[in-house]
Design a protein around this nucleic acid. Structure first.
Lengths: 187, 187
DNA sequence: ACCTTAACGCAAATTTTTAGCGTTAGCGGG
DNA sequence: CCCGCTAACGCTAAAAATTTGCGTTAAGGT
């Protein structure tokens, strides 16, 4: 997530927004491996050195853009019950992330050792699951352990996306969720 | 894994071995982000163009080296019982892969879209687990589902390594293994 | 309104990557 | 065992990307 900006407004913010938008546009058209910093700079109307100084290199920039895209814009859908809430959330997550660009985003985020992009990314999913949990509690349903949900449901999905060793059908996702609720094996 | 070599012996093989060895040496000394192709080429005694032509770019080369390093040299230890076999295997895997270079290897492998490095990598772990399963069957123990083991045990470990959101203590690994054997939730 | 300095643009210097071309040597056939 | 074919390499020049120095612009505080 780049570094914390000391100056958050004005020109600096405009450039960040423009560069982000340009990268997202390019990702629609071409493959991640074809994108270069000078290419982004030209389309965004900035000089390459600005990008290098601010983000360090291409992979950091891509990771920054990825976490920004993954930032939740809304809470998960409320379907009325915990099981269906989580099912919907997980299926949608798998669908988005198993796409060509989705996988690339995960790889970029995970590849960003610095800048805490990886940490930020899994904070987002943690937060979503926490929302589902609180919602369940408010409904009077028996809650669940968020960390266990990550291990039992999210982790397998991410694993298969990254290693590409298995198709991620909605059915498979639902099986994971049902297995999770069927029995808790922690503690 | 580069591309299939049409010529597998002689000079070509020597160069591959020398480049691999050089990369591994460099990874001990410096960070992955500081390594460059010309740097590798010089130390390995080859011209950079050779590396570019053969591996394409740095990330492909690093992924190639990573899978080569991850190639199993021996079967997992035989401790006499399935549960302890898997415990030992998983704890060792977590230890190796959560290290600085181990994590970098995973990232490189996962980042290598082409070349099937990712597929090869998870084939290795699949094979190891399959070995444990066959061994268990031979002993007359109740076998287990390898894919379920990947989902329930390996996936969480890889997830936490890549996102760095949790310490991977041996205790945590053992909890995963015990939870896996305590109950099967598939099918 | 003024001051400080983070962040930028520009351009030169450096490094990395690509591409052309001649040479070396692995491997199969005679 | 020797020969021919060509994959793979080395070398070099050109192209592209990255780094760096320095002057300029404009946030954000006083």
């Amino acid at each position: 997530m780049a570094r914390e900006m000391l100056r958050q407004g004005g020109r600096s913010a405009r450039i960040q927004a423009e560069v982000h938008r340009t990268v997202q546009d390019l990702l629609k058209t071409m493959d991640r491996s074809e994108i270069t910093v000078p290419m982004i700079a030209e389309r965004a109307g900035v000089t390459p050195s600005t990008i290098y100084r601010r983000w360090g290199d291409l992979s950091e920039l891509l990771a920054d853009v990825a976490v920004a895209r993954m930032r939740p814009i809304a809470d998960p859908d409320d379907t009325g019950a915990l099981a269906s809430d989580m099912e919907a959330f997980v299926v949608q997550y798998a669908e988005e992330m198993s796409s060509r660009v989705g996988r690339a985003m995960l790889v970029d985020v995970v590849g960003s050792v610095q800048s805490g992009a990886a940490a930020q990314c899994c904070q987002y999913t943690y937060h979503h699951l926490e929302t589902l949990r609180e919602r369940a509690v408010a409904r009077g349903e028996t809650p669940f352990d968020v960390e266990e949900a990550i291990d039992r449901v999210m982790a397998p999905i991410v694993y298969h996306i990254l290693f590409g060793d298995r198709e991620l059908s909605p059915d498979y996702c639902r099986t994971l969720v049902r297995g999770f609720f069927a029995v808790s094996v922690y503690e």
